[in-house]
Amino acid sequence: MTPPDRPLPDTPLPDTPLPDTPLPDTWFRRDLPVLRAVARLVDGPDHGGNPYLGQVVPASGLPKPDVLAAARALVAAGYVEVLTTYSGEIVRFTGISPEARRLAGLWPTPQSEWERLVEQLTARAAHAPTDVERARWRAFADAAAAVGPDDGALLMSALIGGYVPRAR
């Protein structure tokens, strides 16, 4: 007979997720803040582009065990490069991938550039010095809104990548 203070063998423990439930998110809570901290430090001149783990911890605002777990995940995904000891402990961050630069916000994405373009058009329409210019900028902003963010991102992708289709 099982004592009453112990759960039955087929009853999951309260903190144990069921096997068919999704795992909790780690990207937004842990990995992305660490990636952004690494990107700032790698991109900045203060640390020679190779920050130590001890510099990333306070820059991320997360505890060291979370930073280590995030760093291992980011290395496995190919987002960051690290220098390790012989035993495999992470010592320094030595680089980040182009995709990591985009995810951290250092490089443009088609979506972010489309949003910037729409913001610029709206601001120019609001601050145009004459009614004629205001109407032109408003028409341009309205046309951009009608194109929509999906097709706008495709356009910006072509522009960022340097490919603009030729007229027939």
Rank of each mutant, 00 (worst) to 15 (best):
L117I: 04
G44V: 13
L68P: 00
S97F: 15
G44K: 06
A77F: 02
A73H: 04
G48I: 13
G161S: 10
V132R: 10
G105A: 06
P108G: 07
G54H: 11
R136G: 08
V38L: 10
A70F: 03
S157T: 02
L53R: 05
D43A: 15
E115P: 00
R101L: 14
R124G: 01
A71H: 01
V118A: 15
V57S: 05
V38K: 01
E81F: 02
R102P: 00
H127C: 02
G88A: 06
I90T: 14
L41G: 02
G152D: 01
P149T: 11
G95N: 09
P4K: 12
L106A: 09
T21L: 13
L8K: 04
S112G: 06
F93W: 03
L121T: 00
P149C: 07
T11W: 02
L23Q: 04
L23V: 06
R92F: 12
D25S: 14
V75R: 14
R101Y: 07
L121Q: 11
R168D: 13
P24I: 08
P19H: 11
T21D: 03
R116H: 05
A77I: 04
D142W: 13
A167T: 07
L23G: 04
L121H: 03
Y52L: 14
A77G: 10
G48N: 10
T130N: 14
V164K: 14
R136F: 01
A139C: 04
L41S: 03
P24R: 13
E133F: 07
P24G: 11
V75S: 04
P108L: 14
V56K: 02
Y163T: 06
M156T: 02
P98G: 12
V80S: 05
A125F: 00
A70G: 07
G49S: 06
L159A: 08
A100K: 02
L117H: 09
L121P: 00
P65V: 13
P9C: 08
G48F: 05
T109S: 05
K64F: 13
P108I: 12
L23A: 08
V91M: 10
A143Q: 11
G78Q: 07
G95E: 07
A145Y: 02
R6K: 06
L53G: 00
G161V: 09
A100N: 04
L103A: 11
Q120G: 12
S112Y: 05
D20L: 15
R6P: 01
V56D: 03
L74Y: 05
R92S: 12
R168S: 13
E113L: 10
R138C: 04
